[in-house]
């Protein structure tokens, strides 16, 4: 219990957020939306890390969230750079067009 809220509720909330992100990755074709859904999944995990860090009164979980944030920031920076490069060449960011590795 954290402030009268069961940890199970945090587990459920994180699972729901993660699944919404996963559905977004599967259901959309716009690559930018895909990136945003990945951010959503990362944030679901971050929320759970902070919840457990608060439950166990251990700061390690919150430090780990810092590292996840830094990795997410670099991922987004490089990913969006690649995306704008693809857009410059193909004039589209549809995932259905990015099939060069298939052939």
């Amino acid at each position: 219990m954290i402030n009268g809220i069961s940890i199970n509720l945090y587990l459920l909330l994180s699972a729901v957020l993660f699944c919404i992100g996963a559905i977004g990755v599967m259901a959309r074709r716009n690559t930018i939306i895909l990136f945003m859904c990945i951010e959503l999944m990362l944030n679901a995990v971050n929320l759970l890390l902070v919840a457990f860090s608060c439950l166990h009164k251990d700061a390690t979980g919150q430090v780990f969230v810092f590292f996840v944030m830094a990795v997410a920031a670099s991922e987004v920076a490089v990913g969006l750079a690649i995306l704008s490069m693809i857009y410059r060449k193909k004039r589209s960011i549809d995932t259905a067009l990015l099939q060069n590795l298939k052939h």
Binding site: L13, I23, G24, M36, C37
Partner: peptide, 9 residues
């Protein structure tokens, strides 16, 4: 949080 996450998708 959940409603806005759904609206993102």
């Amino acid at each position: 949080t959940i409603v806005f996450a759904l609206m993102v998708v």
